[in-house]
Amino acid sequence: MSLLRPLSALPSTLAEAAAGPTPAVAFEHVSKNYSARWGQAPVPALRDVSLSVDPGSITGVIGPSGAGKSTLIRLVNGLEHATSGRVCVFGREVGALTEADWRRERRSIGMIFQHFNLLSSRTVFQNVALPLVIAGVPAAQIRARVERLLDLVIEIIDFSDYVVPNEALNAGEIEANSFQNQPYLDNQIRDRGYDIVPVAQTVNFPLGIYSTKHNDWASLPEGATVAIQNDPTNGGRSLLLLRDHGAITLREGVGFTPTVADIVENPKKLKILEIDAAQTARSLPDVDAAAVNTNYATEAGLKPSDAILREDPKGPYVNLIAVRKADADAAWVKDLVNAYHSPEVRAFVEDRFGGSVLPAW
């Protein structure tokens, strides 16, 4: 069955076609093959696909990776061309349009791809505004429209390391991030010159000191062995925890990264054993107590309530929301903080993490 009108009856532009009864998108027996290496058969992405999408309707294309979803979408706006069959948008055959025609007609088609590519020289606002600038929309209308769009959507982007989030924020590729504590941010600003600031606290992953031999800290004998992490950040954090609970005294002015050499008083004559952070939980059978980060404690089956000493959830290691300094007083920042600090988010954190992650507001 034909989904299309004869070419002689087609409208001259997409805008004209949108006013009529023609399907918004129509595929008629469409196949798409990609070329393979020499001597190998072409790789089929689509086979004999026929479909029709009515104007104003919402249609989802669902399938596993490699099913041809992206190819189908790219055929709609001429980024790919069918090997056989016909693709029409509001009755106009995609394959019959010249590249000059497509440069004009693509202004009537909005496409959002699965890649998170932004122009690195532009802020998020400028990236969103770019198509409107190219289309010649007046500046006042662009600002109003982009601000409305950005107010409607928060996109969560995951990063695989601790360096990129601040790089991306400082460059304007993202508007805010939430992954770091104040000591880490201070260090990043000092070393890299970022122009970003904290605007709110979020949650804490409190460090705990655990023991499988003693029920509480007071039960540790004189000369007890306490394992801590051997890296400056976590090891220093553990020493500060011991100091805050009166177990040791540290030299004045040590900041957030004290070392064992900074201990000036040690009433219980504790033996501090420095080992890799990932090994602290595993060391518990061999020591009197060990300082264990939340992630390693969870992996080892330790509960936060098992800790015999634990960090204050409002201490310096609370995670925070950071933005560029120029945005610190923006209305959207206040909206973001208010949304994060809602009773619903607090309830989610408490229910989901069972005390291993603590709200800090």
Rank of each mutant, 00 (worst) to 15 (best):
M1W: 07
M1S: 14
L3G: 14
L3F: 14
L3I: 14
R5C: 06
P6T: 09
L7D: 15
L7T: 14
L10R: 15
L10I: 14
P11A: 04
P11R: 02
T13I: 02
V25G: 13
H29Y: 08
Y34S: 05
W38A: 14
G39V: 03
A45Y: 04
L46W: 10
S50D: 05
S52A: 10
S52Q: 15
G63M: 01
S65N: 12
A67E: 05
S70M: 07
T71K: 04
L72K: 03
L72Y: 01
H81W: 05
A82E: 04
A82L: 02
S84A: 12
C88P: 10
G91T: 12
G95C: 06
L97P: 09
A100V: 14
A100C: 04
R104E: 14
G110N: 08
G110R: 11
M111V: 15
L118F: 07
L118W: 11
S120F: 09
N127G: 12
N127Y: 01
V133M: 04
I134H: 05
A135V: 09
P138M: 04
P138F: 04
A139F: 01
I142H: 06
E147A: 04
R148S: 08
V153C: 11
I157S: 12
F159W: 05
F159P: 07
D161H: 02
V163A: 09
V164N: 13
P165A: 00
A171H: 11
S178D: 11
F179T: 14
F179D: 13
P183R: 11
P183I: 06
Y184G: 12
L185I: 15
N187S: 15
N187D: 15
D191P: 03
Y194Q: 08
D195P: 00
D195N: 11
I196W: 03
I196K: 10
V197C: 03
P198H: 02
T202K: 01
Y210I: 02
T212W: 04
D216W: 00
S219Y: 04
E222P: 00
T225R: 06
Q229A: 13
N230G: 07
G235L: 09
L241K: 08
L241M: 05
T249M: 06
R251I: 06
R251A: 13
V254C: 07
T257Y: 10
T259I: 12
V260F: 05
A261F: 04
A261G: 10
V264S: 02
E265G: 03
E265A: 15
P267D: 07
P267Y: 11
K268N: 07
L270G: 12
I272F: 12
T280G: 02
L284S: 00
P285I: 01
V292S: 05
I308V: 13
R310W: 05
D312P: 02
P313K: 06
P313Y: 10
P313L: 10
K314N: 11
P316N: 10
P316F: 13
N319T: 06
N319I: 00
I321F: 08
I321W: 10
K325F: 00
A326Q: 13
W332C: 05
K334Y: 06
D335P: 04
L336R: 02
R352T: 13
S356T: 09
V357G: 03
V357H: 09
V357D: 05
W361S: 02
W361R: 00
